[in-house]
Write a protein that binds this DNA or RNA. Structure first.
Lengths: 347, 347
DNA sequence: GTTAGCACTCCCTGATGGCGAGTGCTAATT
DNA sequence: AATTAGCACTCGCCATCAGGGAGTGCTAAC
C-alpha cells in the first residue's frame, strides 16, 4: 500500500490537490479542481479518483463533507515523485549571495546572518547547526597567569579557533616557569597534526613530565582534556515568528509545544542531527520526525561542507503543508553556496 | 490627577481590585469584593468608591456592565504605594541559591542557568544582559601564525577573557620573528593597567615601532583596535513560552508583536538598558515602555554588580497584570545573590 | 470508463433569546 | 452625611436553531 506506483492520472490529481492545499490551506474539493485546473475531467471523475486515493492512504478528509487534504503518505509521495524541481528567481539568488558574501568576515556573524536570511526568504522558522570544525594542526599553546591561583590555558589550532580553560592551582607558580613550560610545549608540539599528537608526542611528553613538578602534570592533563572535549556546536535559530502566519497555528495551544521545543537547544540539536540520511538533503514529514512537538510539521535540512567534509546542517521548519519545492530549492542552494564560501576561507 | 494621595478606603479598594485581578485575570465587581474580602462594606458602597476611582483614572471598565480592572495609573499607584513587600519562601531561596552556586564554574553557563531559573520561578519570560566586563590589567599578548598569510592576535586580560582578531598580511613572516615581537610586547605590557597602557606605554611603543617593519606597525594598530572595540554584551532569554499561559495572549495576534521583539536582540537590549533609573530595581508598566510591542506588558529589571560596579541587568517580562510583588522579590534577590557570587569569582 | 443528477452530510454563519454578573441611581436607613 | 437596600438596565456569553454552501457518494445514463 505504500511503495506502489500510482497511475498517471492519480498522480496528477494527488499533485494538484497537494499544490492547491499548500497554497490555500483549505481542503480542496472536486469542483474546485475541475474549475481551477483544466484537466479535462469532470468533478465526478475527480471524486472517484480522490475516493481511490483516500482508500489507499494518500488523501484524507478532515470531515465527511469537506474536500481532501494530503495525508502524510501523500506528502511523502508528492515530495519523492511529483514535486517539480524549482529554480530560484534571479532576485532570490542575488539576495542570498549578497547576504552571505557581505558578511564573510566573522564566522559567527556570517552564520547568524545566513539563518536570518533563510527565514526571511522562506518565511518559515530556520535553524542551523554547526559548524563542527575539526582542527588538524596544532599551532600554539600558552599558559597565562591571571592571578596567583588561576592560570589560563590557551590552545590555538590552524582554524584560528581558540580553546581555553581555566585551571586553579594550589601553589603559586612564577611567570618565568610558565613561560618556560609554554616554550617547551610549543617546541614539541607546534606544527604537529592532532593525529600524531595524541598518540606519540603526548606519550613522550608524559614521560618527561614525570621529571617535572606537579603543576606541569596538571597542565598536560588539562591540555589533553581541552583537546578532547569539543564543545557542542552552536545552534542558530531565527524567524520563529513566521510560523504564526500559518493557520495551523492560529490556536495558541497548537503553537505551545513548538515554542517549548524551540527554547531547548538539546531538542533542536536532535532534530537537526536526526538519524536518517545524515548526508545532503533530507525531508522529514510529520510523524517521521522523532521530536514529538514537531509531528505536525515538516523539516527540510541540508548539510553544508568545508573542503568536502560535512561540518554542519541548515534547516527549515514548517507545517506539513509547507512549500516543499521552494524551500528545498532555497535550502539546497544556500547549503551549497555556504559550503563554497566556507571552503574558500583561509583556514 | 496623578500625584494625588488617595484616602485609605480608596487605597484599600484599589489594592483589593488589583490583587484580585492579578490573580484571576477577570474584571472584579463590587459583589465579589464584598463577599471575598471582609471589608465591612456593602457592594453599593464599594460601587461608589470604584466609580470614584474610575473617574480619577485608577480603574477602568472593559465594558459598561463588567467589573473594574486597574488602569496603567492604577498599577503604578499599586506598585509604588500599595503592594506589600513579599518575602521569598525558604523553598525558593533554596532553589535559587543552589542553581547559582552549582554552576559557578563557567560564567556563560552560570548566566544562562540563572535566566532559565528566573523564568521557571516566576513563570514569565526572563532576560538578562551582560555582564559588561571591564578588564583592567593586561596579561598577555600572543601572535600566532595560522598559515603564511594569516596571523591570529590574542590578547588576554585579567578577567581571563580573550580578545582575538585575525590579520592578513602580504608578506610572509617567520615564526621566529613573531615570537620575538610577542616577547617584546609582553615584556613591555605585562601587568600594566589599561589606563596606563593607552596613554603612555603605547605611545612609547609607537616610537619604537617606527624602527621596525611594516608588519609590526600593523600588529600594534590591531592591538589598539582590539582593545577599543568591545563587543556588545550578550543577551540571554528564556521562558518565552510562559507568557502563553496568560489569557491576555490567548489570541495569537496579541502574541505576535512580542515574539517579533524577542527575536531581535537590539530591541531587547534597548528595553533592558532603558533610560529611566539605570540603577537598581526598575518597574516599567504598559505604555511607560519605550518598546511598542511591550506596551501591554510590564517589565521588572534589576542591575547586578561585580565588586560594586553595575555590570548587567536581569529582568522579567509579563502582562501588565503580572504578579508584581512576587517578581520584584525574586528579581531583587537574584540580582543581589548573583552580584555576590560574581564578586567572589577570582578575577 | 465517464459524467450528470440527486440526496445527504456537515461545517459555518448569523440571528435569537435567556442567563448572569455587574452597574448606576434613588430612596430609605443609620 | 454616609451607607445601604432595591431595582431597572446593560451587555457579554452561551446555547440553540435555521439556512446556505461546499462537498461527497451513489446511481443511472451516456
Amino acid at each position: 500500500m505504500s511503495g506502489k506506483e500510482l497511475d498517471p492520472r492519480k498522480e496528477l490529481i494527488l499533485k494538484v490537490v497537494t499544490d492547491d492545499y499548500i497554497e490555500s490551506a483549505e481542503p480542496v474539493g472536486s469542483r474546485t479542481i475541475a474549475r481551477k485546473y483544466n484537466l479535462g475531467l469532470s468533478p465526478a471523475t475527480i471524486r472517484n479518483e480522490m475516493a481511490d486515493l483516500e482508500e489507499i492512504g494518500y488523501l484524507k478528509q478532515p470531515h465527511v463533507s469537506a474536500g481532501r487534504i494530503p495525508s502524510q503518505q501523500g506528502y511523502r509521495y508528492y515530495v519523492d515523485s511529483l514535486m517539480k524541481q524549482q529554480k530560484l528567481a534571479e532576485e532570490e539568488l542575488r539576495i542570498i549571495k549578497s547576504y552571505i558574501e557581505s558578511k564573510s568576515k566573522e564566522l559567527d556573524a556570517l552564520l547568524q546572518q545566513t539563518v536570518k536570511m533563510l527565514a526571511q526568504i522562506t518565511r518559515y522558522p530556520s535553524l542551523m547547526l554547526g559548524p563542527k570544525l575539526q582542527p588538524s594542526v596544532f599551532k600554539h599553546v600558552q599558559l597565562v597567569p591571571l592571578n596567583s591561583y588561576n592560570i589560563l590555558v590557551l590552545v590555538v589550532t590552524n582554524l584560528g579557533v581558540i580553546e581555553n580553560k581555566l585551571i586553579t592551582i594550589d601553589v603559586p607558580v612564577e611567570q618565568g616557569d610558565l613561560d618556560r613550560i609554554s616554550n617547551l610545549l610549543n617546541k614539541k608540539l607546534r606544527g604537529k597534526t592532532f593525529g600524531n599528537l595524541k598518540s606519540s608526542v603526548l606519550a613522550e611528553l608524559k614521560e618527561e613530565m614525570a621529571a617535572h613538578d606537579d603543576f606541569f602534570h596538571k597542565a598536560i592533563c588539562l591540555l589533553l582534556n581541552t583537546l578532547e572535549t569539543r564543545d557542542k556546536e552552536r545552534i542558530y535559530l531565527d524567524g520563529v515568528i513566521n510560523i504564526l502566519e500559518h493557520p495551523e497555528f492560529k490556536e495558541i495551544e497548537k503553537f505551545k509545544p513548538l515554542m517549548g521545543m524551540m527554547e531547548e537547544e538539546e531538542r533542536l540539536y536532535k532534530m537537526l542531527t536526526d538519524s536518517s540520511c545524515r548526508h545532503g538533503l533530507r525531508i522529514s514529514i510529520g510523524e517521521e520526525n522523532q521530536e514529538e512537538a514537531a509531528q505536525e510539521c515538516s523539516i527540510i535540512t541540508a548539510t553544508y561542507n568545508m573542503k568536502g567534509r560535512a561540518v554542519g546542517t541548515i534547516g527549515v521548519l514548517g507545517p506539513t503543508r509547507m512549500d516543499y519545492s521552494h524551500v528545498v530549492a532555497v535550502v539546497d542552494f544556500i547549503a551549497q553556496y555556504l559550503s563554497e564560501i566556507l571552503s574558500e576561507k583561509k583556514m
